[in-house]
Amino acid sequence: MNVLNISTRSKQYPLFIGKGLRYRVGELLKEMNRSYSKYLIITDETVAPLYLQDVIDSLGEVVTHIVPNGEKAKSFDHYYSCLTTALENGLDRKSCIIALGGGVVGDLAGFAAASYMRGIGFIQVPTTLLAHDSSVGGKVAINHPLGKNMIGSFYQPDAVIYDVETFQSLPDVEWRSGFSEVIKHALIWDSSFYEELKREIPTINELKNIDLTSILEKAIGVKAEVVSQDEKETGIRAYLNFGHTLAHAIEAELGYGKVSHGEAVAIGMIFAMRVSEKHYEIKLPIESIEEWFKQLSLPIRIPSGLSADKLIERMKMDKKAMHGEIYMVLQKKIGEVETTSIDEKVLYLLLEKEIERGL
């Protein structure tokens, strides 16, 4: 087991990463001198039969609440049901909500913890590769039909307990989705990390058959460094949204859950690089990255049936948008990005061209 220290302006907390940690949640919390009056574990219907009992056994008596699998769980109705469970079971200000699952469960449970009695204890126990990103940094939210993650808060957990053994139950789509965000961390921050990933992991099979601890520590290290400098996204934390402006538009336009988040981000990163080439009048290794993404079975084209007009309307609802202007994270070179406004007409033409590539 390794321990990373996550430091933000509002809180410092440990991230434990290793094998078999789901059996040691209670033990690790005792080592941290954390004492809670009651635990509510929020998990989903896929994770519950696999790992819920392991965590319960490590803690003793707990309350549990199971939500559906996927983005549909990040709704007002399921958020309300989480709070109802907390109230019905007498959780107080010394209680703790544990998120056991992927990024969806982490977002939902975290927002419930942030708003219940104006904030109670919160522990992340992620079970997916994608959650290496979402479990760190304190962004918690639910979706609205008009936009992804539009209702939420910044609320740091008390700890992250990351058991990499849980990856073995993931379907290939979740491996691809999670690895897409690992690649994102390399592309925005560390060119040598990008070269390492491209060299060492040409396909998902390689990813599934190596010890991921070192790679995840590097990816989480990027997230931790960014968040330590900018906890509430007033500056460089927006860099973590590289590829997400289009990705969120695609997810919202298709309907949440029709494409995995990481797959949408892969499409968004390719598009952001094309916008970057146009904006900065530079050449980026897009063709090489596209070939790598194909080997990884990551999508590189905008799904059919989506229009430039509709995507732009969605992009205007992005959290980075200001005064009706669309802002995107663009790439100057591998490992260096910035946030800048994009002319809507230029964006429309580039979207049209990218949609044609997919036909």
Rank of each mutant, 00 (worst) to 15 (best):
I98E: 10
K94T: 13
G358Q: 05
G60S: 10
K94C: 04
L254E: 12
M1H: 10
L207M: 13
S191R: 15
Q331C: 15
R176Y: 01
L306N: 11
H244Y: 06
L29F: 02
K345P: 00
Y348N: 14
E352K: 15
L350I: 13
L350Q: 13
I215F: 10
W189E: 10
T46I: 11
F167E: 12
I151W: 04
I41M: 08
V259P: 00
K198P: 00
M328Q: 13
K30P: 02
R314I: 00
R357P: 03
E253C: 11
A249R: 01
I120K: 07
A114W: 07
Y256R: 03
V3Q: 15
S7G: 00
K345L: 13
K232A: 07
L212H: 04
V227Y: 02
L240Q: 06
S177R: 11
H244A: 07
F179T: 08
I17N: 07
R34K: 15
L146W: 05
Y256P: 04
N89H: 15
L187R: 09
D44P: 10
K184R: 03
E233G: 09
I42A: 02
G335P: 06
I142R: 11
M32Q: 15
V226H: 03
M317L: 15
A159R: 11
N2C: 01
K320E: 01
R93D: 10
K316V: 06
D309R: 14
D107I: 10
Q156R: 06
K278F: 13
V329E: 02
D230H: 08
K258P: 03
F293C: 06
F16K: 07
M315K: 05
F76Q: 12
Y36Q: 05
L207Q: 06
E27Y: 14
L52D: 13
L21G: 07
G90W: 02
V63S: 13
L29Q: 03
Y36R: 05
N209D: 09
R93F: 03
G106W: 09
K333L: 00
K148E: 08
Q331V: 12
V222H: 00
K94H: 06
L207G: 04
I183F: 13
H78Y: 15
K208N: 08
I270G: 11
D190M: 03
R274M: 12
